[in-house]
């Protein structure tokens, strides 16, 4: 049985601009990533800034076509589609960005923003009373996300951040997608508003049987709502599994990441100041695509290893024994 979203050996390399030799400044943002997302599930993607998670999401949407690799959604290979068919297919995948302020055109009333999607979908085209049907659909969509339909003539600046994010979600839903990429959808919102949006997203997922790729740096949030989580580090996925799997991490980076989650223990001030390696050196970076923690072995590429049913890790060493000792 195949998954809803299948990503196979995806790679995205950016070539540097400038007068230097070709490839001299190339940078691999996404390096040989494979993952599967089941229908109607939430797939959490975590990692720190610059790890390539946003590049990955843009590649999945084919806004930036990947350098190599394959993306299949519902069995259709996006790379094989012609430009116009891709444009049509893309409506099935929608994206919600972090910053609701830049996600809405300030010169367009929210009604028109939502209608843009409906027109592209060809909603009720050719039918009599199309205008009424469009208006009705806009009201429905706004109602779905908890915005008073009576406010649809207003412009984005008349709404608060949380409301704008709701409108962005309504706009995404206008083209009836089945897959949504949520790129840090709540991190720009106030704490007391975040929970509202998260509840809304979960509700919509159940109601419209959506599939989510949820990208975030907030580990608390990702472990709250994901069915599966993948941890990204320097363009690669170093560990993936269910939330329970990752609660007992195997890869040293996952361990470090999950032990940094705030809100669990009080920081003990007597504790020695641990000085981490990546802070010692300048940010020149390491050889691309090799395991940062492997040390001497770092000349070789790491392979993904399934250590448990569905729990995969990319590491030379099986740290489970070592970790138990700690």
């Amino acid at each position: 049985m195949s998954s809803f979203v299948e990503i196979v050996n995806l790679e995205k390399t950016f070539r540097g601009r400038g007068l230097s030799k070709k490839g001299a400044h190339s940078f691999t943002a996404v390096d040989n990533i494979s993952l599967n997302i089941e229908r109607n599930s939430v797939f959490g993607l975590v990692g720190e800034s610059g790890c390539g998670k946003t590049t990955l999401s843009r590649s999945v949407l084919y806004l930036d076509p990947p350098t190599s690799g394959e993306i299949k959604i519902d069995g259709i290979d996006l790379g094989s589609l012609s430009t116009s068919r891709l444009r049509n297919f893309r409506k099935r995948i929608q994206i919600v960005f972090q910053d609701p302020n830049s996600s809405l055109n300030p010169k367009m009333s929210i009604e028109n923003s939502i209608k843009e999607g409906l027109y592209n979908l060809g909603y009720a085209s050719g039918e009599t009373g199309r205008r009424q049907k469009l208006d009705q659909r806009v009201d429905e969509l706004l109602d779905l996300v908890g915005i008073t339909p009576g406010h649809k003539k207003r412009y984005p600046h008349e709404f608060s951040g949380g409301q704008k994010q709701r409108i962005v979600i309504a706009r995404a839903l206008s083209v009836e997608p089945d897959f949504m990429i949520l790129d840090e959808p709540v991190s720009n919102l106030d704490v007391s508003i975040q929970a509202q949006i998260i509840n809304l997203l979960i509700e919509l997922k159940e109601k419209l049987s959506l599939t989510y790729l949820f990208i975030s740096h907030d580990l608390n949030l990702v472990s709250y709502l994901s069915d599966r989580i993948a941890v990204m580090f320097k363009g690669q996925i170093v560990e993936a599994g269910t939330v329970e799997d990752l609660m007992t991490p195997v890869h040293p980076y996952t361990m470090k990441l999950f032990s940094s989650i705030p809100g669990i223990n009080r920081i003990d001030e007597e504790q020695d100041l641990v000085f981490h390696v990546e802070e010692a050196g300048y940010s020149e970076g390491l050889p691309e695509g090799y395991c940062f923690y492997a040390g001497e072995d770092s000349e070789a590429k790491v392979e993904m290893l399934e250590i448990n049913d569905g729990h995969v890790v990319a590491c030379f060493k099986d740290n489970r024994i070592e970790r138990r000792k700690l």
């Binding site: 055109n105 962005v168 995404a172």
Partner: peptide, 28 residues
């Protein structure tokens, strides 16, 4: 690079539509 242009592409809008609906009104 604004979110609404990316979102418009994701909604399936073509380049001309993006120019006239999103880019021109905002640089006006």
């Amino acid at each position: 690079t604004e979110g609404y242009v990316e979102a418009s592409r994701a909604l399936g809008s073509g380049t001309l539509k993006i120019i006239f609906k999103h880019i021109i009104p905002n640089l006006l």
